[in-house]
């Protein structure tokens, strides 16, 4: 996995916090945490390293909406999940000029969450009809909104290269073995 180590180093210099995760449990290899301003540089680097964009989406948590990016690579199995929090004014830099496919994904995310991607070439409605432009259907209602730490995996399981934790999470069957990968 030399190439992946190299990539982690490169991404770390951005600087972005990148961790390996257990593919068998989470279905992706690397997890990155970005500041809003780092997103274009991050995407630019992955574009140069011949990654493609799987999707851009978001999740509504308190205190602020998180934007989720997933990238993967044609040449080798390396799936990256990146998260970034929108700025206080509800905006985030667009990556549509780096990955053309992000154009639609960002428009969809604006439809669903109202996030404004700055620098997007045409942030118009994609899926919603004009009369429902302000619906923002995927925003959580007051009672259903959870803080960000309540949707995170128990931290001891994120550590790289260790066996899956043996502490069972409440109400869940303990993940065991690999799911045939």
């Amino acid at each position: 996995m030399n190439k992946t180590d190299h990539l982690i180093n490169e991404l770390g210099r951005l600087p972005a916090a990148v961790n390996r995760v257990d593919y068998r449990q989470q279905g992706y290899h690397l997890e990155a945490r970005l500041q809003a301003g780092q997103v274009p540089a991050f995407a630019e680097l992955l574009r140069q390293r011949e990654f493609y964009l799987v999707f851009v989406s978001a999740v509504h948590v308190s205190p602020a909406i998180e934007i989720i990016y997933q990238f993967a690579c044609f040449a080798r199995p390396c799936r990256i999940l990146a998260r970034s929090t929108v700025a206080a004014d509800g905006t985030l830099p667009s990556i549509a000029n780096i990955f053309d496919g992000a154009n639609w994904h960002e428009r969809e995310t604006r439809d669903m969450f109202g996030v404004v991607f700055t620098g997007h070439p045409g942030l118009e409605l994609l899926l919603l009809p004009e009369e429902e432009a302000d619906l923002k259907p995927l925003l959580k209602e007051e009672g259903a909104l959870k803080p960000a730490d309540q949707i995170r995996r128990a931290p001891d399981e994120e550590v790289q290269d260790t066996k899956p934790s043996t502490t069972a999470e409440p109400g869940a069957k303990e993940p065991k073995g690999e799911h045939r990968q």
Partner: peptide
């Protein structure tokens, strides 16, 4: 369990992925 996971499959049209 609390946390996130992704799963990708190859459909007849290409990559379908759930997150």
């Amino acid at each position: 369990p609390q946390g996130d996971a992704s799963f990708a499959v190859e459909t007849a049209r290409g990559e379908l992925s759930y997150y």
